[in-house]
């Protein structure tokens, strides 16, 4: 029966206020709280619901990342994924390389559906799902807020700038998730124990025949410009006169 592949990235927790290193070499990630990219949690939740509805028989969580990424994959298994694959890679890779890795796994597993987040909230690239769909030569539906599967066709509602748009896709296909697709379930303690016994395979880029050529060089990372401190007004009267003074009203 059919499989769903879910891409799960380990990222800095969305509540962390990130700081740029003084030497401009990057951002401070030492000792910072990490978690599953929020969009990927939604992707996993959707896959689990599709499995519960009988659309799929197996949900596989896949990640590319450092050895510690096993933590996030164990969480994914505790949420309900059947097995996990970690492509172990200490240094960050570019989205095109990530897409090539996921393509290899897709070719091996032949899933009905691949669900990714619409963007990873560390680099905010928002590219991997679309690139994977292109390389796989399959349809893509980005920013999904509703997914319906009927036989070999998916109807996906997507959040676009103009409102909501619906696409019909021949499966297999790639879907990227938006925030309102679902609310991910909480993990229960017994599930965490059970997850320890679920299979988690570890691969390397080399074993998949992929090289990590970089196309982009980061010359420096800088903090955003600081804003001038604003003024506090005491009432509506003062608010309106201040805005008039500034010439915006």
């Amino acid at each position: 029966m059919s499989k769903i592949l879910v891409c799960v990235k380990r990222v800095v927790d969305y509540n962390v206020r990130i700081r740029v290193k003084p030497d401009g070499s990057g951002v401070v990630t030492d000792g910072v709280k990490m978690g599953i990219n929020p969009f990927d949690e939604i992707a996993l939740e959707e896959a689990l619901r599709l499995k519960e509805r009988g659309v799929a028989s197996e949900v596989i969580a896949v990640s590319i990342g450092a050895a510690e990424t096993q933590q996030q994959l164990r969480t994914a298994l505790a949420m309900g994924a059947d097995r996990a694959i970690l492509v172990e890679q200490a240094e960050a890779i570019e989205p095109l390389t990530a897409a090539k890795v996921f393509l290899k796994i897709a070719e091996k597993e032949s899933p009905l559906l691949i669900i990714t987040g619409k963007q990873a909230i560390d680099d905010d690239n928002g590219q991997t799902g679309q690139m994977l769909a292109a390389l796989w030569n399959r349809p893509q539906a980005c920013f999904a807020s509703k997914v319906e599967i009927n036989g070999n066709i998916a109807r996906v509602t997507r959040e676009v700038d103009a409102g909501l748009e619906t696409l019909e896709l021949d499966l297999p296909a790639v879907i990227t998730t938006d925030l309102r697709l679902n609310e991910p379930r909480y993990v229960k303690l017994p599930e965490i124990m059970k997850a320890k016994k679920k299979p988690l395979d570890i691969l390397t880029l080399a074993s998949l025949d992929i090289t990590t050529s970089r196309q982009f060089n980061v010359s420096k990372v800088t903090p955003p410009p600081v804003k001038q401190k604003g003024v506090m007004v005491k009432d509506v009267n003062e608010l309106i006169s201040t805005l008039k003074q500034k010439g915006v009203l």
Binding site: D124, N217, P224
Partner: peptide, 19 residues
């Protein structure tokens, strides 16, 4: 071949060069 883009929801800016 030299651009600036935001990461981490705009809390950092990366200066990138491409060959």
């Amino acid at each position: 071949h030299s651009f600036v883009r935001p990461i981490y929801a705009g809390n950092a800016l990366v200066h990138i060069t491409t060959n």
